[in-house]
Design a protein around this nucleic acid. Structure first.
Lengths: 209, 209
DNA sequence: GTCTATACAGAGATAGAC
DNA sequence: GTCTATCTCTGTATAGAC
């Protein structure tokens, strides 16, 4: 999105907003036009049809922070940070659920997940697989360095990722009803503390002596 | 649903199927009628309108296994089973994602979660809160009995619940594309093993002596 | 690039015969 | 209780003037 004040960009934003709120199918071109302040027919000067808007939304998901938990850094550079890295990732999830732009994208993704095969492919490969794979490399390296106990790195990656995703979903859901998200928000940090405490190498008690 | 072969029940099933597949809004009365083998207009002899079918689906969610993880048993009767109880619950989640009826309900729930406020209330109170509350009582009792280490029972409940939900979502999503669910399916048991291992009271090593 | 007007298809719902 | 026919509304999309 280059010109954030161009009409095309306004249409895109309005559409994304509405898709996330009520779903692609339930959103009408008239509504989109209304929110932009133009006639419905004028949209067709910028997008071939309704589906073309949807396509652009899905395409833009890829460059979103929603997806790039590791911000293009490699596990090798990161794993030495230990618990701080996990805290950072956990915080990314939290920020995503509170940032207006990314939470809309997340809500859109969950809305349309079962309606759009292309989106499912994207979710699977870019959101789930890519991040879990990177996470499992991180854990593998941590094991080698004897920072954490040896187990299945892929399992650890899933076990770390899953609650973050779930809590994110909780927050976005609660926000949809304007309910308080305070309790849910604390779970991001608690999860990381709990998780790290359980996987880190315990000092062989002093009592061993 | 009393008469599984009555027309009303056929309509209900066809509608639920379609709602779960393509969403409520995208499902047409004509499609429902076609799948039942009657004219679209005949549906109105059994349901006031399209929304009435939706209402009935949401109502029936309450009695589904999807929700009643504890099968109406109380934490007090159950907690002594220890790890076996967690295995049982984990297995419930797994079964739900593979049973044709419940996986449709789950998919429907995820489809419409952000479109239907009543469904969100239901999800929050009956699916999430109720089960997490029961789980946290279970963990609390386990702590009292010194089966597991003392921490925040509510955190434990969330940490146990969240991955099960996530893996369930993974399976239902993979099934939507006819992809293999084998790898994801193993995570239910691995999660429980991992989780129990981390929370159970460790034998104070022989080495203490 | 936006407007008005309009075409066209598909949706939910009702009426009345059988 | 189901059918055919039809009404009405809403939605996407196009044409053509400005």
């Amino acid at each position: 999105m280059k010109k954030p004040n161009g009409t095309k960009e306004k249409i895109y934003s309005a559409a994304l907003q509405l898709f996330a709120q009520k779903g692609y199918k339930a959103t009408t071109m008239r509504e989109i036009g209304k929110q932009v302040g133009i006639q419905q027919s004028a949209i067709y000067n910028h997008f071939k049809n309704k589906e073309a808007i949807l396509d652009e939304v899905i395409e833009n998901l890829a460059s979103s922070h929603l997806i790039n938990l590791f911000e293009n850094k490699e596990p090798k550079e990161l794993y030495k940070k230990g618990k701080a890295l996990l805290k950072h990732i956990s915080n990314m999830f939290k920020l995503i659920s509170y940032n207006t732009e990314t939470d809309t994208l997340f809500r859109f993704m969950m809305q349309e997940l079962f309606n759009n095969e292309r989106l499912r492919v994207f979710y699977n490969e870019e959101f789930y697989q890519k991040n879990v794979k990177k996470l499992s490399i991180v854990f593998f390296l941590m094991m080698q360095d004897e920072m954490i106990e040896a187990t299945d790195p892929l399992l650890l990656a899933n076990e770390f990722f899953a609650p973050l995703f779930f809590y994110q979903l909780q927050i976005v859901r609660l926000k949809a009803d304007n309910k308080s998200t305070a309790a849910a928000a604390t779970l991001f940090e608690k999860h990381t503390d709990f998780f790290w405490d359980k996987i880190k190498i315990k000092e062989k008690n002093n009592s061993l002596f």
